[in-house]
Design a protein around this nucleic acid. Structure first.
Lengths: 352, 352
DNA sequence: CTGAAAGCGCTAACAG
DNA sequence: CTGTTAGCGCTTTCAG
């Protein structure tokens, strides 16, 4: 197994100097067409690939940014990532992927581990000489994060604990608008008694349920709004629905904090022989694959994850280019859409 | 923004030579406790992080391997990846992630783009000085792959086109055993008339349907076995089921080539008022989140993706360590499990 | 447009 | 155990 060809080998074969060959691979305009061709031909022949490590080593300004995803398995982060990648491929920046290396399901049970993993992951990717960093779903404190990212421009995309929002650049969803969409849609169908099953009491889910309550209050429907505390699982939906069905004052619509919870809701409803949407309307959040099943056809809130990824990348690069160097942290809130399917409908005469 | 501290800075602060400091970060045993502590303290104070690029540059033997996943969004690849990552964290190898950067759904429509992307992605990751490569879901020809990976040990994990199997190290699922599990389970419930909805005529799906046919033949049930050509979508399941229900000789069980197809099957069945499993049994493949929904409770084949990832990593590292240097390519077939849920049951008296 | 020379941060002999 | 020395492959002045 002989070693890979180097720039030297290429230059030699092409009968030019090393530096000239280097210029060719930087697409520099100050190379004669003739030399360029000779170099490219030699490179082709040798199967030459520039050595990124050597490149990075030389220049402080590496034109590459790191992306730390909590869990590449989760479609949520994957879509964010595609936004970032798409934006990067329109630029001359390269992307390095870091992964905190645990399934988010497991991690949600163990925020402590997740936190240390994330810090580790950031340190790890820093060791590759990057110009900036994009992170998502951080569980760290502002101090820890600042320490780990020191001197490195950082943008957070996606769900963001509120304690990080004021100190860093953030691109997140406009949850208030999401609540507006949901409540507006339901009330337009005549629903008033609406129950929200939350994702828990953590910062993120709490924000979503507060937005719901606020929106209901705005419409003077506080009295008929209700929030049940759940968590990100089918079981939460299933159990909460059981609870809901027991009550004498049954709601006409259920708003689940995500689609998985909504799946639990639907399962319980089916078990009880209740029809959707005739007997009760159900609405989810994420517009995940679950919502898109023919079997469920779930009306759901769709975040613009791809766009958020793109914006995060752009925010970072404008910072890097110094166009916004010393400005205070920015917060971009992106408006989601509501994808209306058949799990929501008008309030039936009977339940009125 | 001052530049990051280097090993030199650390050594200076700790009042030792550069090389000694270097040894400390390599966990070398030949450093006195005293020096080690001094160095570590200095590093801590400066916030020093070893520069990976410089490290890589120095040693030909980088102790890191590249992983090229077609689509990090797809849970299938994600689980494979976790296996790889898990094995790597038990070793002293580092992992570099490459991503071909497209959603697999889109790519399935455009194999040509996918192919070139994969080659590009491999070249890309090669530029980082890696010792070996793990890939999944390749669409390239053996020649292209050999060219892209030349001199670099390579292991393929997961679905693998048969034309690649003989030439490279491969860790894949034992599809014949999967078929055995499915048919054995169904026949034990008395099913004989079984329809398989395939994922298409490509190499991968074709292998799965052939395995089904072979298994039925082995049990002398060829006459009552039937294969409908579908593709990896709900719609295929939905449409094929419509087809199936039209036929006079209705089967008692449907085996879908993956869970998504099974979702389409269930949707159609529900629409027609048919009960599962009382009227008809349904079985899927992947044990995906769809199968795990309370709403569907789908019996499904579960591949050991995590284990395949681990084995792929181990196969690669044993190659790297030269323990199996010149041997011919290896093929490891991993046996899947059948997760039995409530979408399958005994043949009803009526349909008998 | 081209070539010579210096050095990025680190590791790996090799002597003390 | 510790320090000296010499590059890894590439980019980047700076003179031709």
């Amino acid at each position: 197994m002989k070693r890979a060809p180097t720039l030297n080998d290429v230059a030699e074969l092409a009968k030019v100097s090393r530096s000239l060959a280097s210029l060719v691979f930087q697409d520099s305009p100050k190379v004669s067409d003739q030399s360029r061709k000779a170099v490219l031909k030699a490179a082709e022949k040798l199967g030459y690939q520039p050595n990124e490590s050597a490149r990075r080593l030389k220049s402080t300004h590496t034109k590459s940014i790191g992306v730390v995803l909590t869990d590449i398995h989760n479609p949520y982060y994957a879509y964010l990532f595609y936004g970032v990648e798409s934006a990067s491929s329109d630029s001359d920046y390269k992307i390095l992927i870091g992964n905190s290396g645990f399934l988010s399901d497991e991690l949600n049970q163990r925020p402590q581990i997740m936190k240390s993993r994330q810090i580790e992951s950031i340190k790890n990717i820093r060791s590759q000489m990057i110009d900036g960093l994009i992170c998502s779903s951080l569980r760290t404190t502002p101090d820890e994060l600042r320490a780990a990212s020191r001197n490195l421009p950082l943008v957070i995309i996606g769900h963001t604990p509120s304690n990080l929002i004021t100190d860093f650049d953030v691109v997140a969803t406009d949850e208030a608008f999401a609540a507006y969409l949901v409540v507006d849609h339901l009330t337009s169908y005549g629903h008033k008694k609406i129950v929200h099953i939350s994702g828990g009491t953590d910062d993120g889910p709490a924000y979503r349920s507060k937005a719901f309550v606020a929106e209901m209050r705005k419409r003077k429907l506080s009295a008929s709004a209700r929030v049940l505390e759940g968590h990100w699982s089918q079981e939460a939906g299933y159990d909460c629905t059981e609870e809901i069905l027991k009550s004498t004052d049954r709601p006409t619509a259920i708003y689940a904090a995500n689609d998985l919870i909504a799946m639990g809701v639907l399962a319980k409803l089916k078990e009880q022989g209740l029809r959707v949407p005739e007997d009760i309307s159900v609405i989810g959040y994420d517009d995940s694959q679950f919502a898109q099943l023919h079997l469920t056809n779930l009306t759901s809130v769709k975040e613009s994850l791809f766009e958020m990824g793109r914006l995060g990348f752009e925010l970072l690069t404008t910072r890097l280019e110094g166009k916004r160097g010393t400005n205070s942290p920015q917060l971009l809130r992106i408006k989601p859409d509501l994808i209306v399917r058949t799990s929501t409908g008008p309030v039936s005469k009977k339940s009125k």
